[in-house]
């Protein structure tokens, strides 16, 4: 059987060409020391000259460094971003609620379609997934249920131990006909 790395999903011997080599190495060391020693503590025979070999390892290191920086940046972005609950007036006394930035949540935990159905039956309103002006998916609920949605999302986030802020926005009514 082939042993796959749990970090980068490749067969372990290809970790060195992956984007998270350092992490993969640590994982393998703690999980399967025997193979670790075989892979990294023995001389690898290669037909290439030393200079070429160095060139490869340099470019790989560069790529891995880039990837690490990117991950860091993403993490900071994630910490700064928040889920937006928008309360948008439709007529003077009617509102719809749009929830944006839901793609921040892990799609394995949070299924947009299912949640949409759930909202529809929970609030007895129409509920759909539509693309907003930035071409990102958002859930649109027909009805003034912003507070309920917020408490539901809070509960969901707390129970899963995710650290994401939720922000509430109410848009003003503007009479477009004028």
């Amino acid at each position: 059987m082939v042993l796959y790395c749990e970090i980068c999903s490749l067969p372990v011997e290809f970790c060195e060409f992956g984007k998270s080599f350092k992490k993969c190495k640590l994982w393998l060391q703690s999980n399967n020391n025997e193979i670790y020693n075989k892979l990294y503590n023995s001389d690898i025979k290669s037909s290439l000259s030393k200079e070429e070999e160095e060139k490869i390892s340099n470019s790989l290191a560069k790529m891995q460094l880039k990837e690490e920086r990117k991950l860091e940046r993403d993490l900071i972005n994630l910490q700064n971003s928040k889920i937006l609950i928008k309360r948008i007036p439709r007529t003077k006394h009617k509102y719809i609620v749009a929830i944006a930035n839901l793609d921040l949540l892990d799609p394995n935990l949070f299924d947009m379609k299912k949640t949409c159905k759930k909202f529809a039956s929970k609030f007895a309103t129409g509920c759909s997934i539509s693309k907003n002006s930035e071409k990102k998916d958002e859930i649109v609920i027909q009805g003034d249920v912003a507070d309920e949605v917020e408490s539901y999302l809070r509960e969901f986030i707390d129970s899963n131990g995710i650290n994401i802020k939720i922000e509430h926005v109410t848009e003003r009514f503007t009479n477009k006909k004028k």
Binding site: F14, F17, S46, S47, L48, E52, E53, I56, S59, L60
Partner: peptide, 23 residues
């Protein structure tokens, strides 16, 4: 050969010299 791995894993078509070299 070993020099080609990097390129293959980023999706490049394989060039003949990578198939005929000593490795």
């Amino acid at each position: 050969d070993r020099g080609a791995i990097k390129f293959v894993l980023s999706g490049a078509n394989i060039m003949c010299p990578g198939l005929t070299s000593p490795g």
